[in-house]
Nucleic acid binder design. Sequence first.
DNA 1: CCGCGCATCCAAAGCGCTTTGATATTTGTT
DNA 2: AACAAATATCAAAGCGCTTTGGATGCGCGG
Lengths: 349, 349
Amino acid sequence: MNLRELSEILGLSQTTVSRALNGYPEVAEETRRRVREAATTYNYHPNNRARSLATGRSMSIGHVIPVSTQHEIVNPIFTDFISGAGEAYAAAGYDLTLKMVSDGDEDEVYRDLANRGSVDGVIVHGPRVDDRRIAMLSELGLPFVVHGRATGSTREYSWLDVNNRRAFYRATSFLIDFGHRRIGLINGIETMDFATRRRTGYREALEEAGIVPCPELIAHGEMTERHGYASARQMLNDAMPPTAFVVASVICAIGVRRAVQELGLIVGRDVSIVIYDDDLSYFKSGDDIPVFTAVRSSVREAGRNAANMLLDIIAGTGDAPRQRLMEAELTVGSSTGPAPDLAPHRQRG
Amino acid sequence: MNLRELSEILGLSQTTVSRALNGYPEVAEETRRRVREAATTYNYHPNNRARSLATGRSMSIGHVIPVSTQHEIVNPIFTDFISGAGEAYAAAGYDLTLKMVSDGDEDEVYRDLANRGSVDGVIVHGPRVDDRRIAMLSELGLPFVVHGRATGSTREYSWLDVNNRRAFYRATSFLIDFGHRRIGLINGIETMDFATRRRTGYREALEEAGIVPCPELIAHGEMTERHGYASARQMLNDAMPPTAFVVASVICAIGVRRAVQELGLIVGRDVSIVIYDDDLSYFKSGDDIPVFTAVRSSVREAGRNAANMLLDIIAGTGDAPRQRLMEAELTVGSSTGPAPDLAPHRQRG
DNA sequence: CCGCGCATCCAAAGCGCTTTGATATTTGTT
DNA sequence: AACAAATATCAAAGCGCTTTGGATGCGCGG
C-alpha cells in the first residue's frame, strides 16, 4: 500500500493525503479524519526511503564507534551512552546508524557518511588530542557534536563533556586529605583527550599538596579489567607501593581490586580506591554504602544530552556551536580510608 | 555533485556513468576508466537515499535492543555482539540501524521497521519463551535471524544460538565431579529463553548425580553486578549454604565474588565459581590461568555469524530458514576447587 | 554489399514521497 | 452585488539514482 493507491481509494490527490497525514493546516479537518482512518484500515505507512529522498533528510544520526584494532576492544560505556541517546532519537523520530570502525578507518567512514547523505548528523566518540576529525567534519558541513573535547583544535565546535580535570582533582584531593601521599593513577589510553585532562587534574591535586608526581605511578591503557589488574599489580610490587589508586573506570577498578586482594591486602584499609564512575547500568551498586568511593557522572545522561544538542543544531534552533560541561559528583563508599602508616604493606594485618 | 552533473561533464548518459561505476559489463573499459577518474576528481559519491529508493533495498540491518524499563538496564553483551555483526556489515556494504527500545514497545518497532522499509532485515535479540515476535516477523515477510531461540514457537525460523543447556550441564557436572552437592545457580531473567535452557542443563546435571534441585539455590534476574551480589549473599546466609555457584555472566560473577569475600571466604577454596563467559572484550583475562573457570563462547563471534547468516538470507543464497548451534568450551581457571568438607564455612580458615 | 551479432551507449520510465504553484470553492466586506 | 481574501484541493515537478528496452555503429561471413 503506497500513497498513490491510498489516494485513489480515497478519491483524493496524493498532495492532500500526504498533507493530511503530515499535519499540514491547509486540509479540512473532516478530510483529515477520513484520510487517517483509511490509512489505518489499509495499513498505510509512508516509505522511509522515498520520504528521505523527497525531503533531503535521512532522519538518522550516525555514531561512529572506534574499535581498538589490536584487541578488538569496544569501550563498554557506549552501551549506556547510546541507550541514552536512543531515547532522544526515538522521541524525535530519528534513527540511529551505528558504525563500528577500527581506529584507522575513522576518517573515511565520517566522510562517507556525509558524502552519501546517509545521516543528518553525527556524534563523535573518543576524541583525541588534536583530533583531525573536527576540522574534517566542519569542512564537510555535517552537523556534529563531540562527546568529549579535543584539546588543540583551533576552531569552534559543539561538544558535551564531563569536567574530567576537576573530577580527578577532587578524587585525588580526597585521598590526599586522608593522608595518602603515594597515589597511583590508572588512566585510559594516553592519546585520548579525556585521559590527558584526567591526568592534569590528578597532577594539580598532587602538586597543590606539595607532592611530586611520580611517573611509575601513572598507567595508561584500554578500559579493561586486565589493564586495571596488571597496572595495579605492577605498582604494588614496587619498592615504594602506592597506598591508594585513582581509577578511570569501574571495569578497571575490578581489576585493581583483584590485584590488591591477591596480595592479601584489604581494599579500604590497606589500599584505598577512588573510581571515576560512568554509572553503568549493570554496575550500579544501589546499596546504601556504595562499593567504591567515586566521582560519578551518568554516561547515559551524557548520551541523552548530546543527542538532544545535536537534534537542536540540526533543527536550526539556537546557534551552534554549543558547549556543555557536566560536573561529576563525589560519593563516598567503602573503598577508601585513612592512609596506613609508613610501614610496608606486607607487615600489616 | 550528483550523477546528472557528472554525466554532463563527461558527455555521457547517466546510464553509462552509473553502470561504469557499478561494474556492469556493458561499458567499455576505457570509458569506465574515464568515469572512475572523473568521479574521483569531482568527488562524486552516489546518494544513498536515492539509491535506496531506486533499488528498493535500504542496505541496512536493524537491531532492536530491549532496554529494561524499570532500571534502564542494557545487557552489556550487546556491545560485543554488535561489534562482531558490524564487521560483517561493513564488509558487505551494509549499515546497522540500532533501536533501543523499552520492553513493551518492541512489537511496534519491528512492525514499523518492516512497514516503512527502513531496513532489509533484522536481528532479534533476547528472545523469550513463546516469543510473539517470531510469528509477527514471519508474517511481515521481513528477513530475520534470532540470536537465541524461542521454545514453543511452532514455525520454522532462522536462529543462531549457543548450546546453553549443554554448557550449563557441563559447568554443573564439573562442580559435581569436584564433590560439590549444593550448587547455586545465578541465572538471567526467568522469562528469557536462554535462562530456561540454562536452568534445564543445570537441573539435568544435578538429577543425573542424584541431587534434588533446591529452589532456594536458583536465582533469576538482570545481568548486573548487583544481582550476582545480592543473590549470592542471600544463598550464603542460608542455613545450608552452597559450596559452589554456576553464574550466567562475568558481570554477575563479580558480584558473587564480592559477596563471597565479604563473608571472609575464599573463592576457589571455600566457594567455587563457574561462569558462563561471553568473552567480553573488556573482561578477557588473558592470563595463563584464567580468573574464573568458565564455559565460554564468544558473543562477538556469534554476532559475526548471525550477521552473515542474515546477509546470506537476504541475498537469497541458500535456503532459509537456517540454524546454527555453537558449543561453549570449558576452561579451568582458579575459581574452582574440591568441595570443602561438610562443616559450615564459618568455622574454616 | 547485405544483414547479423556484438559491443557500447542512450532516452526515458520508474522508485514513493514532498512541495510548488494553480485552481476551484467558499466566506467576508463594503 | 461585487470583489477580495481565505479555504480546500489538485496536477505536476522534482529528489538522485537504477534499469528497461531500444538505438547506433562496427566487424565479418556469405
